[in-house]
Design a protein around this nucleic acid. Structure first.
Lengths: 210, 210, 210, 210
DNA sequence: CATGAATGAGAATTCATTCAT
DNA sequence: CATGAATGAATTCTCATTCAT
C-alpha cells in the first residue's frame, strides 16, 4: 500500500516465511511444555497441545513428523535453554568459586523451580530409560553440567580430583532439585543456599588438604 | 469333601484362602514391576502385565479394582521393601556414622541399581506431580529417609543442624542415584563410596566446628 | 434343564468356545466381503465392516490382529471356497473332458459371477502387486487352477503339451471372467458356453494332430 | 510487457501458454503412473505424486480439480496410449490375420508388461466396479479392442461369428495378460506366441468349417 | 476365583483440499 | 501459475473395563 520506495535489504515488512515457521514451532513447543506441566505426560495428547496452541491437530505432524518428534524438540528446547543460561552466567563469573556458583544458580535457579519446568523435566526423565531419543538429549545435558563444573574446578585441582568433585557437586545439585520438585517446593532460595554451603565446605577442605 | 474335623493348628496342608489371594496380588505386582522396567510406564498395559503374570486380563480389576489401584499397590510395595531393608540395616548399626552408612547402603544398594527397580522408581516419579495417590506414597518415602538420617544424627547435633545435614545427605543420595540411573550405570559400588566420602567429610567438619 | 444323563462325548449342548470364535471370524469375513462388494476396497473401513457384522470395531483387532489380517483371511476364505468347490466337481467327473469342464464350471460358475464375489476378487487383484500377503494367496490359487487342468489333461497329452494347453485354458477362463466382471455382466451362462466351445475345438485339434 | 506485435507464425520462441500447461499435466500424469506402480493405489497420495513430479501439492487441484480428476486423466492417458499404438499397428497390417496379430501385439506388447503399466491397469480395474468415471473409460477401452478384432475378422466371417470370435480372442488376450501380470512375469514373448498359436488354430478351424 | 470375548471411547496419524502469499 | 502452511474429517489401532460363563 505504501508508495515509498521499499528499502532494499534483507528485511521485508512482514515476517519472512522461515521466521513464521520458527514461530509456529516455538508456539507448539511452549504449548507442549504447558500441557505436560498441567496434566502430565500421559494426558498430554496431540489434541490437548493443539488446543493450547490454538492450531489444528494436523499441524503437529506437518512440523514435527509425529508426536515423538515434537516431544524430542521440546526436550531439546529445555536443554538448550538451560545451556544458554549457564553459558551466560559462566561468562560473568571471574573466579573458580563464582563459576561453580554460576552452575548452581543456573540449575537451581527460579526457572527450574517453576512448576511448569520442573514437572516437565521429571516427566521426561521417567521416559528416558525407554526412549533412545530422549536418552541422547538427557546424556548431553548431564555431560554438560559435569563439564562446566570440571572446567570451573580445573584451576584448583588435578584432573582426577576435579572430575570427582564435579560429579559430587552435580549429584548434590540434581538431588536437591529432585527432592524439592518431588515435594512440590516452589522455593529455590533455600536449596541454592544449601548447595552454596556445601561447596564452601568442599572448598574449605580443599584448602586444608593442600 | 472330607467330613473329618480339620485339625486346628499352625498350618493346613493347602494354602489358606487369604494367602492364595496374597500370592496372586504379589504375582501381579511383580509382573507390573517387570513390565514397567522392560517397556516403560506408557507401554505397560493390563494385557502386558497379565501376560507376564500368566493370568487373564480380568483378574486385575478383581484384585485391585482398576489399573491405578495396581500401580499404587506396586509403588507401595517398592517403598515398603526399601523401608524394611533400611530398618534391618539400621538395627545392626551401632554408631551414628554406621547408621548413616546404613541409610546410604540401603538407598544406593545393589537392589536399587537393578535396572528392574531404578527405572520403575523413575517412571513413578514422572507421574508423581499429577497423581495424588502416587504423591502420597512418594512423600512418605521421602520423609522416612530424612527421618532415618535425622535419627542417626541426633546424638551428634542440635535438631536444626541435624535436620539440615540430613536433608543434605538425602539430597546427595538421591542425586547420585538419579545420575547413575539416568546414565544407565549399573554399578552402585563407586556411587556408595562417593557418598561415604562425602559423609566422612561432613563429619570431619562437624568435629572441627565443635 | 434336562435331567436326563448327558451323553458323554465331545458334544456339549451349547456351542463350544472354540466354535463360537470360529463363527465370529466367519461373520467378520462375510461382512468384509459384502463391504468390499458394496462400497469398494478403499471405502471398506473397519467401522463399515463392524457395522455390517453388528459388532464393535475393537473386535477386528482382537480376532485378526489388524485390518490387514482380516483382509488376508478374507482372501484365503474366497480361495479356499473355490478350491473346495473345484475338488467336489472334479471328483464327480469321469472323463478328461468332463474334468476340464468341471474346472470351467467352478471358475465361471454362478457364484463367481455374483457381484458380491467378482468385484471382491478384482479388488484384491488390484492390491496383489503391492501386498506380499495377498500375492502369496493369489499365487497358490493360480497354481491350483493350472494344476487341476494339467491333471485332467494328463491322460491325453505329453506333460509339456498338457502344461501348455492348461495354461491356455486357464487364460481363457480368467479372461472371460475378467471381461464379464468388468463389463458388469451378471450372466455366466454365455461365458461358460464360450469356454466349452473353445475346449471342444482344442480337443478336436488334438484328435486331428494324433 | 512488450507492445510489439507478436509475429504470427508456426512457433514462438517460448512455449505457448497452453503447451506449458499441457506439459505440466503430462508431468503429473506420469508421476501418478509411477506412484501407483511403485506403491500401489492406496499409498498413492497427492503428496507422493507431487513429490515425484517435483511440484507442490496445491498444483494438482489447480490442474485437475481434485485427486479423482487426476486419476481419471491418468486412466484416459493409458487408454489413449494403447489406442494410438493399436491404430498405428493396424494401419501397417495388410491381411485379416495380420490385423488380428496387430491387436495381440499391441495388447500383449512389451509396454503392457512393464511393471509400471501392468500394475497400474490392474489397480484401476480394482476400482472400476465402484467408480462410474473409471468404468466409462474402461468400457470404452474394452469395446475398442473388440471392435478392432471384429473389423479385422469381417472379411472372413459373418457378423455374428465375427463377434463371437472377437470376444473369444479378446478374452484370451486379457486372460494371458492378467495371469502374467499377477504372477509378476515380465516377459511378454511367450505370452504373445501362445496367443498367436491360438489364433492360428482358430483360423485353421475356420478354414475347415467353410 | 478366573477366564477371555466384547465393548467403545480415545489416541495418533493421514491426507485431500483450501487459501493467503 | 505456483507454493506450502494450515485445516479437520476420517481412519486405524489401542486398551481399560465389563460381564457371561
Amino acid at each position: 500500500m505504501s508508495s515509498l520506495p521499499r528499502p532494499t535489504g534483507p528485511r521485508p515488512a512482514r515476517l519472512r516465511r522461515v521466521d513464521a515457521v520458527d514461530v509456529r514451532r516455538r508456539q507448539l513447543i511452549e504449548a507442549t511444555i504447558e500441557a505436560i506441566a498441567d496434566v502430565g505426560f500421559n494426558a498430554t495428547t496431540i489434541a490437548e497441545i493443539a488446543r493450547r496452541a490454538d492450531v489444528s491437530t494436523g499441524l503437529v505432524s506437518f512440523h514435527f513428523g509425529d508426536k515423538d518428534g515434537l516431544l524430542e524438540a521440546t526436550l531439546r528446547h529445555l536443554a538448550r535453554d538451560l545451556a544458554s543460561t549457564a553459558a551466560a552466567q559462566m561468562r560473568q563469573a571471574s573466579s573458580p568459586r563464582a563459576r561453580v556458583q554460576a552452575v548452581i544458580d543456573t540449575n537451581l535457579g527460579p526457572n527450574q523451580f517453576e512448576r511448569r519446568i520442573g514437572t516437565v523435566w521429571l516427566a521426561f526423565w521417567g521416559q528416558v530409560p525407554h526412549s533412545p531419543r530422549f536418552a541422547r538429549v538427557q546424556q548431553a545435558y548431564q555431560r554438560r553440567i559435569a563439564s562446566n563444573l570440571r572446567h570451573a574446578l580445573r584451576p584448583l585441582l588435578a584432573p582426577k580430583a576435579a572430575h570427582a568433585l564435579a560429579e559430587t557437586i552435580a549429584a548434590m545439585i540434581d538431588g536437591l532439585w529432585l527432592r524439592a520438585t518431588l515435594a512440590g517446593d516452589a522455593d529455590g532460595h533455600e536449596v541454592r543456599s544449601v548447595a552454596g554451603t556445601f561447596v564452601d565446605n568442599q572448598f574449605m577442605l580443599l584448602g586444608q588438604s593442600r
